[in-house]
C-alpha cells in the first residue's frame, strides 16, 4: 500500500487519495517524472469519479506535462467522454497543442471517439487545426477510413 498518488488515482482509489492529500495537499497537483499529475493519470485510465473528486479538491486541469500533454488530451485519446465533459466545465484551452503533435480533437478523431469529438466541438474545438504532419481532423478521419467520424466533421463544418 505504498503506491504513489498517481497510481492510486489511476486505480480510482478515492479513499487512499483523500488520505494522502489530507496529509499533504501539495500532492494534489504533484507531477511525476514525466510531468503527469494525478488528474492526468485518472483521465488517462478513465477514472471518472476520481477525476471529479480531484477537480473538486482543486486539481488544476490546465497543467501541462513535460511534452505539453494535458488531462483533456488524455481523456480524449482514451474516449472517456464523461471525463472530457467534466474537464470542459473548467477553464481549459480546448485547442491546446502538444509536442506529440496533437490537440484533444485530433486525439479523439484518431481514436474514432465520436462522442468525445462532439463534446469538444460543442466547446469550440478548432476543426482546422492540423497535426504537425499536416493532417486536419477531417483528413485524418478520411485516411483512417472512419466514415461516421468523417460525416460528423463534415456536418459540423456545414453548420459553421
Amino acid at each position: 500500500d505504498n503506491l504513489s498518488i498517481h497510481q492510486l488515482a489511476a486505480h480510482g482509489d478515492i479513499a487512499q487519495v483523500k488520505m494522502h492529500i489530507t496529509c499533504d495537499n501539495s500532492l494534489l497537483n504533484s507531477q511525476d517524472e514525466r510531468g503527469f499529475t494525478p488528474l492526468m493519470w485518472a483521465a488517462a485510465f478513465g477514472e471518472i469519479e476520481m477525476a471529479q473528486f480531484l477537480l473538486e479538491k482543486g486539481a488544476d486541469p490546465k497543467t501541462f506535462a513535460r511534452e505539453r500533454e494535458c488531462a483533456l488530451s488524455l481523456a480524449s485519446a482514451g474516449g472517456f467522454t464523461d471525463i472530457v465533459n467534466i474537464i470542459l466545465k473548467h477553464e481549459v484551452d480546448v485547442n491546446s497543442y502538444d509536442w506529440n503533435g496533437g490537440t484533444p480533437l485530433l486525439y479523439a478523431v484518431r481514436g474514432n471517439h465520436t462522442k468525445c469529438v462532439e463534446a469538444l466541438l460543442r466547446h469550440g474545438a478548432d476543426i482546422t487545426f492540423e497535426a504537425d504532419s499536416g493532417y486536419s481532423p477531417i483528413a485524418l478521419a478520411v485516411a483512417l477510413g472512419y466514415r461516421k467520424m468523417q460525416k460528423l466533421l463534415e456536418d459540423h463544418i456545414l453548420n459553421l
Binding site: 485519446a77 502538444d98 485516411a143
Partner: peptide
C-alpha cells in the same frame, strides 16, 4: 489485494502509419 502497477500514461502518435499528407 495487491494492486498491479499501471504504466505511465502516454498519447498515441496521431499519424503513425499514415502516408505523408
Amino acid at each position: 489485494s495487491q494492486l498491479s502497477l499501471y504504466t505511465s500514461p502516454s498519447l498515441p502518435n496521431i499519424t503513425l502509419g499514415l502516408p505523408a499528407s
